[in-house]
């Protein structure tokens, strides 16, 4: 499998009133063809910012730099805003966390879809409408013809997320980035949307990046998983490696904190002690040192290097590096 997207040393910072904030501090990541890559991490760990940096969707206050940002072999960093715009939608599309605010309240669903369709295909309005109806049917919206004329407020959250997904499908992208696509939805709808995404990936052979903080969703959906913390990638591996042989202490903590049905009444949920570091005041060393039971002095002083455990799994931890050596 070749790499569709290859990120080398991505760094993103924001200039804020309280000074420069380093949100992403050197992330290496790749997305292969026809796979689902999961990015997991707590709020503020940089999951969304990483992918928004790639898409060029961050506000002007953000500064994105990287050694390279290769998409299908082309460096996105060398593209102008106009050229990047051609990539968005057609090559890589993104769907977002909150479907309630993702659509323009004053435009019909049909308008949203046909606008996107006609941007990429030279078709008449009537043809675009036909395609749009077909897309809505594909994402499981009942009586799509009638739904075309309706406005976003007449749709439920799950249905709106389906609409956004169908917008993405209209673009026929090679890479779909789903940024917590089910976080705002209730559990039954969550499962439906995730199944839909999985099905679409299978049918169309597109790659997907799924951003979530839900380990259960990850296990279910992904081929590979990247764990982010404090703006760096702490561990990366296949689903089996991450779930059965986690290496990084933070990954282990994360897995331990998944609520399990077999936990008996009265026992406490396992939480990770402490809070993620503030991006305004990042520690010099390992970002997870303050919450790590095994942390040594070195962990606080120095950012660990990446240690590889297999062709697919690697982690960023001093202790692991020492053990391997």
């Amino acid at each position: 499998m070749s790499n569709l997207l290859e990120i080398k040393q991505l760094r993103t910072s924001f200039s804020t009133l309280r000074g420069k904030v380093d949100a992403i501090r050197g992330v290496d990541l790749c997305v292969r063809e026809n796979e689902i890559l999961g990015i997991v991490g707590e709020s503020g760990s940089g999951k969304s910012v990483t992918m928004k940096s790639v898409m060029g969707l961050l506000p002007k206050s953000a500064k994105v730099s990287a050694d390279s940002l290769l998409y299908k072999g082309e460096d996105l960093l060398k593209k102008s805003e106009k050229q990047l715009q051609k990539y968005r939608g057609r090559e890589m599309a993104m769907i977002f966390q909150d479907p309630m605010t993702a659509l323009n309240p004053l435009r019909t669903i049909g308008y949203h879809l046909t606008e996107v369709i006609r941007r990429y295909r030279k078709v008449s309005k009537a043809e675009a409408e036909k395609i749009a109806v077909e897309m809505l049917r594909q994402v499981g919206i009942p009586s799509p013809e009638a739904r075309m004329k309706q406005y976003p407020h007449e749709f439920s959250g799950g249905m709106r997320q389906r609409v956004v997904i169908s917008m993405a499908l209209c673009c026929e992208p090679s890479l779909l980035i789903a940024d917590e696509p089910t976080t705002a939805l209730d559990v039954t709808i969550q499962a439906q949307i995730l199944d839909l995404l999985k099905q679409l990936k299978k049918d169309r052979g597109m790659s997907m990046v799924l951003i979530s903080h839900d380990m259960g969703v990850m296990a279910n959906m992904c081929d590979r998983i990247a764990v982010m913390y404090g703006g760096v990638l702490v561990e990366e591996g296949t689903v089996d490696e991450i779930f059965y042989h986690p290496q990084h202490p933070y990954t282990k903590d994360l897995l331990r904190s998944i609520p399990r049905p077999e936990i008996t009444r009265g026992s406490r949920l396992q939480a990770i002690d402490g809070a993620p570091p503030s991006l305004h005041d990042l520690p010099a060393g390992c970002p997870s040192a303050t919450r790590c039971a095994h942390a040594t002095e070195r962990c606080f002083a120095e950012m660990p290097a990446v240690t590889a455990f297999s062709a697919t799994q690697n982690a960023r931890c001093h202790l692991l590096a020492e053990k391997e050596a």
Binding site: Q85, M94, D98, P105, R119
Partner: peptide, 11 residues
């Protein structure tokens, strides 16, 4: 948010 979404779809 809908503006970001529109941008993500190449508007």
């Amino acid at each position: 948010e809908y503006v970001t979404v529109q941008r993500a779809f190449g508007s």
